[in-house]
Design a protein around this nucleic acid. Structure first.
Lengths: 134, 134
DNA sequence: GTGTTTGCAAAGTGTTTGCAATTTA
DNA sequence: TAAATTGCAAACACTTTGCAAACAC
């Protein structure tokens, strides 16, 4: 196993996830560069291209496990689909409606001052999605 | 036709939509009170209860026409579904994950200072969705 | 009348589930 | 070996579409 894959395996173990072949592969694809925005379908294709196909069900299971473990952030867009974002720090997005492309907005550029409190429960995530039409 | 329905009919005409029986009914259900958050399914049910059933296809078509005409705002949530919000002024939402309920956040409580510009195109909408877990 | 709108049923999209076979610790 | 994970195929929720009949102007 290469050094890169060992780092992913450790990351998974640290998050309480068994470092299976599929999880290590998907993790190494996701985290091979910074700030990736990937759909389940794209990741499925990348795995196939890499010569290690993973079933769609496992792609979805794995992505959700990564989200639950805080290793990934899910951005729900229209049309019933989601992007999975490797940047888990607070930051928001432009969604270009014509291309479907998602672009980061640096965190220092967006703030929510005077945040009201919900009537009950704890804030779990704040999603800011700015739709842009060409 | 009652005064209320005539107002809806005018609103539709003004937006360039023919005031058909179905559009007037759905409009009058939507706008019968302020700041409603309704799903397509709910509106379909309300029409049935009102004794004037409208097909699901027409509910969807109509909601999208209202959104395109700026009479309604669409809030995409997870699970592939949407709320349709009669409040078209800038304001954001709490989404209570356990109940699925959507709650308004008054506009004066949320601001996005130093808004960056998209690399191309015009901003079409800004959605702020704060997920709350009980 | 003519173009628009409706309703039905079928198809579509992205996602989730049940469960037997496989893999991991 | 015991528990967790995978992959397949079927099911799913929500939404959209094609097209003939009905409607609005």
């Amino acid at each position: 196993m290469t050094k890169q894959l060992l780092i992913v395996a450790d990351k998974l173990k640290y998050a309480g996830l068994r470092p299976t072949r599929q999880r290590i592969l998907l993790g190494s694809l996701l985290w091979r560069e910074e700030d990736r925005h990937v759909t389940a379908e794209q990741l499925h294709t990348e795995a196939k291209i890499a010569g290690m196909p993973v079933s769609m069900a496992t792609v979805y299971n794995t992505l959700h496990q990564f989200v639950d473990a805080g290793l990934l952030h899910q951005v729900v867009i229209g049309g019933g689909s989601s992007y999975f974002d490797t940047n888990t720090k607070p930051h928001y997005h432009f969604l270009y409606e014509t291309s479907g492309e998602l672009e980061d907005i640096p965190a220092e550029n967006v703030q929510l001052p005077d945040m009201p409190m919900p009537k009950s429960g704890a804030i779990q995530s704040i999603d800011v999605l700015i739709k842009v039409r060409a």
